[in-house]
């Protein structure tokens, strides 16, 4: 049975509370520590974006929430509390049947690269029906009506799309079909993993607009996983920067973009060109992503960081609150703020 806890620190206003989550993969070379002690809370209706380079553990994190990790992965520790009204259940303790109902009905994950998300030999309508039936919905008329509404919201022509086979739809259309299908059962939590990668710039634009529209009309909490900072900026309420399987900064979207405290966040933001072009030169973060089998001692970012001191190499900075809404894991965040992250720029040029 799933444990249920209503007491103590579990708070009802949160739809998801993640406590000290550790996930690792067994590889030939050793254990890959993909997620290392991630904790955060997600408020009902809130959008939280996870950003970071590829290989920082974002996607692993997303897959852990719906327990779809590959066989080589293991959740070492942690709790994922999902709250259903007045009670909270630990997703990691769910058994098979309970999990099947949790998936999509309560938590829908929309994957990156929806190109191959659909069974090529079944029409979209059959796959919609499959999904609905799996969760006990059998009224075809009702399903059809709901799906037509959703397709209208994602700007698809319902009749044509329902009749089509996946290969008859373009990449952007398939992505929108998957988003609509994700909302079919009115989930309270949606996980979007790189929803716009693999799409051209115009299609990306329309998918972003669709997502914003949906967020305004429908009530659901959203976890957005992306390396695309502009996407995060447009959709998120809060942003978490991930590095080497850890959250290194967690703050409101405004703070992250205008007052980044962590040198890595500074680097990420400066690595993306802005439309107005007045935020200064583009940089790339020197060095390469950390080895997750033998992560660096102390702060995992220290080998690439221009603010490194001896302390960074020895002691790992905890994720601490520097204001009620801003958390950062850096010994030198004050210096970073004071300089506006200037050293990231100079190091990149050196």
């Amino acid at each position: 049975m799933t444990e249920q806890r209503l007491d103590g620190h579990l708070n009802e206003e949160y739809i998801l509370q993640v406590e000290d989550l550790w996930v690792s993969y067994q590889a030939e070379r050793g254990t890959v520590k993909a997620v290392c002690g991630v904790s955060f809370n997600l408020r009902a209706g809130e959008t939280l974006a996870f950003i970071g380079e590829s290989g920082c553990g974002k996607t692993t994190l997303g897959l852990t929430f719906i327990r779809l990790l590959p066989a080589t992965a293991r959740v070492e520790r942690g709790r994922i509390w999902y709250s259903r009204g007045t009670e909270a259940v630990d997703v990691l303790a769910m058994h098979e049947q309970e999990l099947r109902h949790f998936r999509w009905r309560e938590c829908a994950m929309i994957f990156q690269g929806a190109q191959n998300a659909f069974n090529p030999v079944l029409r979209i309508w059959d796959q919609v029906l499959d999904t609905a039936r799996a969760h006990g919905e059998t009224d075809k008329k009702k399903i059809r009506q709901r799906m037509e509404e959703l397709f209208q919201l994602v700007q698809l022509e319902p009749r044509r799309v329902l009749r089509a086979y996946p290969h008859q739809l373009s990449g952007g259309m398939r992505q929108r079909v998957l988003i609509a299908l994700g909302l079919l059962l009115n989930p309270s939590l949606v996980i979007l993993d790189e929803p716009t990668t693999a799409l051209d710039i115009l299609t990306q634009r329309s998918v972003i607009d669709v997502l914003r529209g949906l967020k305004e009309r429908l009530q659901f909490s959203l976890i957005l996983i992306s390396h695309d900072l502009s996407l995060a900026a447009e959709l998120a309420d809060r942003v978490a920067t991930m590095y080497a399987g850890k959250i290194v900064e967690l703050a409101s979207v405004w703070d992250i973009y205008y007052r980044p405290h962590h040198p890595y966040t500074v680097g990420l933001i400066r690595a993306v060109p802005t439309l107005s072009g007045d935020r200064g030169r583009l940089i790339s973060i020197p060095g390469s992503p950390p080895d997750l089998i033998n992560p660096p001692t102390g702060c995992p970012f220290h080998p690439r960081c221009p603010y490194t001191t001896e302390r960074c190499q020895e002691e790992e900075p905890p994720l601490q609150a520097v204001s009620p809404t801003h958390h950062v894991a850096c010994w030198h965040w004050e210096k970073v703020i004071a300089e506006g992250g200037e050293r990231m720029l100079t190091k990149a040029e050196a």
Binding site: L68, R103, W104, R105, F111, N116, A117, P120, D130
Partner: peptide
């Protein structure tokens, strides 16, 4: 991917 997504769809 579609097998994974089918699992995610419950």
């Amino acid at each position: 991917d579609y097998v994974m997504v089918a699992k995610a769809r419950g």
